[in-house]
Amino acid sequence: MDGIGADGVGAGSVVADEVVGAASRALQRRAKCGSRLTDAKRAAFLDELARSCNVRRSAGAAGVTEGTFYRLRHRDAEFGAAWEAAMATGYARLEAELMAEALRETDAGDGREPIDRDLALRLLGRRDGAARAANRGGYGRSTRTKHVPMAEVEAALMRQLVLLARRVKAGA
């Protein structure tokens, strides 16, 4: 099949063909999607996110849709924490670049992409304001989802059920 590399992965992340069909129609060959979210794809996403703070660009660098990463962040507390750490790294880098640019004379031949200062400052202010609000326990905290591993949720529920069973037993 054209576009498939030696590793079995090619354009569009197609890895092989599969035969599909249903009771009311004939069998047909169809390209099987190879969009499994590997550790390498997660790492590529997080690396680019730390560099750019841009989810769409980061997902593109990993060869996966951005929706896949948003769903993963919602489901996986560890990945959600890594996402936040990558964003914090990216914002710290942006802040450092803005400071460096403010302290040096602009050199048109230094090979760096120009920074939209107004946009960068608005983004940093927004991030800083959300962090302050979250630390106060005020605005912004209710809009953030706390990522908790399923095992932790199940353990908390079991503790509550044990307490409830003791109360029922004591009252009977």
Rank of each mutant, 00 (worst) to 15 (best):
C53R: 15
M99V: 12
L94M: 12
D47Q: 12
K32W: 08
A102K: 07
E84W: 01
A134C: 08
V9E: 00
R126S: 11
A40R: 12
R104N: 14
A16S: 10
E154M: 11
V55N: 06
R117L: 14
C33T: 12
V14L: 10
A50R: 01
R71K: 13
T68M: 07
Y139K: 08
R127I: 04
A120E: 03
K146D: 03
R73E: 07
T89W: 09
L103A: 15
V153S: 11
T106E: 07
G5C: 03
A170W: 06
M87T: 05
S13A: 13
E97N: 15
T106Y: 02
D128P: 00
R141A: 14
R112N: 07
G63T: 01
L46I: 00
D76H: 06
G80S: 13
L98C: 13
G111C: 15
L123R: 12
G10P: 00
V20H: 09
S52T: 15
E105P: 02
R159C: 00
M99P: 00
D128I: 07
E66C: 04
A6T: 14
A82M: 08
A85G: 05
M1K: 09
G171T: 10
I4R: 04
L103K: 09
T89H: 12
A50V: 04
M150F: 04
R51H: 06
V15E: 07
G21Y: 09
M87F: 11
E95A: 12
K169C: 08
L98F: 05
S24W: 13
L46K: 00
A22W: 04
E78M: 07
